[in-house]
């Protein structure tokens, strides 16, 4: 038992270390690329080279992620969920939603969309923007509010696109992509309190590393297959957009989300809004 515990602790420590290291490396690598080639940093950025260089493989992986991600989205809306025992009733589908779920989803969406629109992306060098701090809220909404929080993140991103004036066919990928950013830590992180090493470790695994990869590949695969409709060249899709989403979601969620989660969890619990408490009461 204690051996299992200590190996779990090592795993947790490893996840946190990996998440923080990944965030630091990403910032460092981009900084290096920017210094080496200020005109076109993407051509020197290692992540761009990986996503674009292996785009055929990314396309195949993306297809699998897209099918699974979309399936999960539909299944969860229908009130079902995948478990080890197969497909079971979740009790959190749209048909089960009460007014509190509608209010949670709508307010999450309005606040997420509002923060995305009102807080400017962080300027790395003059004329070049990158990190969006508000993105740190998507996994928090999922973990704290459950499926309404995941839908809130998806709609919030859509609203930010509408408000910003860049809503288009590509936004449909961003819709489910943002749902998954919130859904993955909601579903796979067992302890949502951010107060134990296990909670933080699992968050770094699911809410930082895996989520960043899944959302980047999901959104970019959609842009890739809709190339003839959206008009983005594959280099822009895999060489610029994929590494941008990936790095943004790693850095922002590794730095901000655990701090936010630690501060906000007691407030959410205290107000009776934590999804597990609400589902239990229902």
């Amino acid at each position: 038992m204690s051996e299992a515990k200590s190996s779990a602790r090592v795993l947790v420590l490893f996840s946190v270390l990996l998440g923080v290291l990944a965030a630091a490396l990403v910032v460092y690598a981009f900084w290096q690329a920017l210094t080496a080639n200020p005109e076109n940093p993407w051509s020197s950025f290692i992540l761009s080279q990986i996503f674009f260089g292996y785009r055929d493989m990314m396309f195949v992986v993306g297809a699998v992620i897209w099918i699974l991600g979309t399936l999960v989205f539909v299944v969860e809306l229908l009130g079902l969920t995948f478990t080890r025992r197969g497909l079971t009733k979740s009790g959190t589908g749209i048909a089960n939603w009460g007014v509190i779920d509608v209010a949670l989803a709508a307010l999450s969406a309005a606040v997420y969309g509002g923060l995305l629109a009102a807080t400017a992306p962080i300027v790395i060098v003059p004329g070049f923007t990158w990190l969006r701090p508000a993105n740190s809220l998507a996994p928090i909404f999922g973990m704290f509010f459950g499926i309404p929080g995941c839908i809130g993140a998806a709609i919030g991103n859509l609203i930010a696109d509408i408000v910003g004036g860049f809503f288009g066919v590509g936004s449909f990928g961003g819709f489910i992509g943002n749902f998954l950013i919130a859904y993955l830590p909601y579903k796979f992180v067992k302890d949502h309190s951010f107060s134990s090493s296990q909670s933080i470790g699992e968050f770094y695994a699911w809410g930082v590393l895996i989520q960043a990869f899944v959302s980047a590949v999901y959104i970019c695969w959609w842009l890739n297959v809709t190339e003839a409709i959206v008009g983005l060249p594959l280099f822009v899709v895999w060489g610029i957009i994929a590494p941008t989403i990936f790095t943004n979601n790693i850095v922002v969620n590794a730095v901000l989300s655990p701090v936010l989660g630690r501060i906000l969890y007691p407030l959410v619990k205290g107000r009776g809004l934590y999804w597990r408490d609400r589902v239990r009461v229902r």
């Binding site: 509608v102 989803a105 709508a106 307010l107 969406a109 309005a110 969309g113 509002g114 839908i151 809130g152 709609i155 919030g156 859509l158 609203i159 509408i162 408000v163």
Partner: peptide
């Protein structure tokens, strides 16, 4: 409803 409510609350 959630979508339009969010737009109205924005």
């Amino acid at each position: 409803l959630t979508f339009t409510l969010a737009l109205n609350l924005l």
